[in-house]
Design a binder for these strands. Structure first.
Lengths: 229, 229
DNA sequence: GACCGAATACTCCATTTCGAGTAATCGAGT
DNA sequence: ACTCGATTACTCGAAATGGAGTATTCGGTC
């Protein structure tokens, strides 16, 4: 069980809205989208309604009134409770103050990249760099538009953060591709030789049985598997 | 429906192992852990077994043999199929070449940070900086150990990537805290005044009804809600 | 040789998540 | 007056996730 009674970040966004004033779930949805928060917090209907229900079950919000207009579906308006306010402040404080291990897709890819030959990885990383540059430019353009509307920076810190992260990723990816191509990255020769052997039809198991014979002195470390770093 | 028949990154890790040689699920588990991949790819039993089953159902792996030793649970050994190899290469290529929107907890926190008063946010960000520095040092220490064992860099690129990202995050967070304190961050005065009013008991709804009266000229933008940036 | 903790190898199932589907209403044009 | 796409407001169930629980065996030690 997670530390929070409701652990989906969307629940925090819900509390944040209800901290302003009572709303019904669909209004929370439109409010968050209007403010562009769905870029930073995963928001889909299924989760929204189940998260609201769960918040209510745990006493962090209460139903204020239910109304219906014509034959449209019933609308239930929710309000935040004092416990909800406390949870909101505590949770938001935790998000800001405490880094958590996140599993990103690039990290997964990098951790398995030895499964593809070095030249191909370098080429793929170049492609990524191109796409990253496009994304970065798009973010900058959006920032310029916001500035023109005199929208204070505080309403888009998330975007600035994303910009910083994308820029750092681009720098890393570019440098990595370069270091693979120049074999400056430790182990690249081993890696290249390995895929040359695969291309010739040698199996992984054959190589693993006697790495030094196939790959040279550098492969001594593979003898009894890498220790966990 | 997602583009991949099996979309959990753990499935890619499973394919990566079986690409070396046939294994049973628990052996995949220990192999990945021994190599420290569980730091980069979420790995728990429930997911492992259901992912393996799903991969088999889709023809990406096949059962090679089932054996049992004594009265221990049965072990089913799986092998990768040609379609599995293709999926592995294609998927890994996509992970490396194509950035995807990720929802990080800091980004969620930043997007809602206006819900806490500026001084507190600055303090929380300082706390985060301290913890980030500790994590960064731990990563560097692990890297030194790996270097001492002559473990080539290629086996821990993920860690280098994480290091780069943490460093960038630290720089951003430090700078943001500073810019909040100096009110250099656009909108900080508005934000501060807002929480002063809350502390005095003014409600959000009162302020929202006539922001300029409460917050001054700078609040004109709030009149009919921010456009999505 | 009996005992204990660690490792082996899963199983099970309560939650959670996701997004397609539904159904009514509004508003802008023809 | 009508039609057609957008918006409003949610429902539903299949699939994924997470992690506690189970049952056996091994390796050391008192």
């Amino acid at each position: 069980m997670s530390r929070r009674r409701v652990s989906n970040p969307l629940a925090l966004a819900v509390l944040s809205c209800l901290n302003e004033r009572p709303m019904h779930p669909y209004e929370i949805n439109t409010t968050l989208r209007r403010r562009g928060k769905e870029q930073s917090i995963k928001l889909n209907y299924g989760s929204l309604y189940s998260v609201v229900e769960s918040l209510q079950k745990h006493g962090l919000i209460t139903t204020r009134e239910t109304s219906r207009e014509g034959r449209r579906p019933e609308r239930t308006i929710y309000a935040i409770t004092p416990e909800g306010v406390e949870e909101f402040e505590d949770w938001l404080g935790e998000l800001l103050s405490t880094p958590v291990r996140e599993f990103t897709s690039l990290e997964a890819g990098l951790s398995l990249m030895a499964g593809l030959p070095p030249d191909e990885v370098a080429r793929l990383l170049d492609q990524r760099s191109d796409k990253l540059r496009i994304e970065i430019r798009a973010l900058e353009a959006a920032g310029d538009v916001a500035a023109e509307f005199d929208l204070p920076e505080i309403f888009s810190v998330e975007a600035h953060y994303r910009h910083a992260m994308l820029t750092a990723e681009l720098a890393f990816v570019q440098q990595l591709a370069e270091r693979i191509r120049t074999a400056e990255l430790g182990g690249t020769k081993l890696w290249r030789r390995m895929h040359e052997l695969f291309a010739e039809g040698t199996s992984f198991e054959q190589i693993a049985a006697d790495p030094v014979a196939y790959l040279g002195e550098e492969a001594r470390i593979l003898q009894n598997e890498q220790p966990s770093p």
